[in-house]
């Protein structure tokens, strides 16, 4: 049992990180904090990929002519792409937060919901009148 825990410590860490990130996204009402949580969540996946590509005793995947075992380079490449995607998402998310702050005057989810609900109600009344 302990053996399994220790030998797969990287996966445990990744899972903890993943859940932490997801929890932040769900539990925080602050829009920026949500994005931070999302980032943690995504980063855990990057770690998952990178840690699974490691071959114990392997070197960097650079051809030297000598027959060596080397780590799998493909996940790194994949994660490079995923990182770019993550950055884009973060940038876009923050841009949206800025715009939300400008038009609602707040970045707290509860306040935004209140503002939207009153807008809904006024629309409904205006529509039926």
């Amino acid at each position: 049992m302990i053996e399994a825990l220790i030998s797969h410590y990287n996966y445990w860490l990744i899972i903890i990180l993943m859940m932490l990130g997801l929890y932040v996204v769900v539990s925080r009402g602050n829009l920026v904090k949500k994005i931070v949580g999302l980032n943690i969540f995504q980063t855990s996946v990057f770690l998952l990929y990178i840690s699974l590509s490691k071959v114990s005793g392997g070197t960097a995947p650079i051809l030297t002519g000598k027959p060596e075992s080397f780590s799998n380079p493909l996940p790194h490449v994949l994660i490079l792409t995923a990182i770019v995607v993550g950055i884009s998402t973060t940038a876009l998310g923050l841009a949206l937060v800025v715009r939300i702050r400008e038009s609602y005057g707040t970045i707290e989810e509860d306040d935004i919901l209140i503002a939207e609900r009153s807008q809904d109600v006024s629309e409904r009344n205006g529509g039926s009148a």
């Binding site: 999302l38 996946v45 998952l48 699974l52 995923a82 998310g93 949206l96 939207e116």
Partner: peptide
């Protein structure tokens, strides 16, 4: 202005969805 919050919510949920997807792919690749 609600387009902004709609896009934001979609961004959060969409990213979670895509990340789940990529975790799945990673596990299969594993």
């Amino acid at each position: 202005r609600r387009a902004l919050t709609a896009a934001y919510n979609y961004l959060i949920l969409g990213t979670i969805g895509a990340t789940f997807f990529v975790i799945g792919i990673g596990l299969l690749y594993m």
